[in-house]
Amino acid sequence: MSTKKPMITCRDVHKWFGDFHALRGVSMEVQQGEVIVIFGPSGSGKSTFIRTINRLEEHQRGDIIVDGIELSHDVRNIEKIREETGMVFQQFNLFPHLTVLQNITLAPMWVRKWPKERAEEKAMELLKRVGIPEQALKYPGQLSGGQQQRVAIARALAMEPKIMLFDEPTSALDPEMIKEVLDVMIELAKTGMTMLVVTHEMGFARAVADRMFFFDKGEIVESGPPEQLFKKPKEDRTKLFLSQILHH
């Protein structure tokens, strides 16, 4: 453990939407290079939780520390954390008025102040990595769902983040496109990227996850390495949920 340092520290994180208590004291420590898979029934707070890490949702109690920076109301801290954190959304959220290349170079040019040539070079390198360099000059609307999500991953990586957050990245995809996105994510996991992935793709979890967290009703019910959760889950709720998503 001495060589590793905590990348994300969450202590007793609470979040309310009005009267609804969405997160009830979530604590988690993520080491550099770890791949974390978060799963659970819908409405369990798993998406809300990873969205608090880059402040797309504001937590109301507890501490979140990302790469040594504490998330507070200080806008500078929030922006600094967002620069270090890439996010991939369920609905891709590419910018439809910009080309694929412009989608990827936008943040490096405006936030990191890179010259255009450098940003474009990086973008093409990333597009090659996700396997669609030939789509660079097209608009998002001209691509398939799987291609769009791979562009979204490239866009997040263009900022050279230390952490990648994935919020159900394959849930909006047609079945035949899920694999092409998961392959990119598996390859990324192998490079040592710190990743938090909300997903029900248990094949992905088995292949690359270091630890898994099962969320229900705003709490972490159970966590541990994949083989432990798959083979001998301790909690009944975990058993029930896994049996539902694994045998259908």
Binding site: E79, R82, N93, A107, W110
Partner: peptide, 14 residues
Amino acid sequence: PKGQYEAAYAMGLN
């Protein structure tokens, strides 16, 4: 859509 704002903020744009 709200997702456009979120994507923009998530990549560090002010």
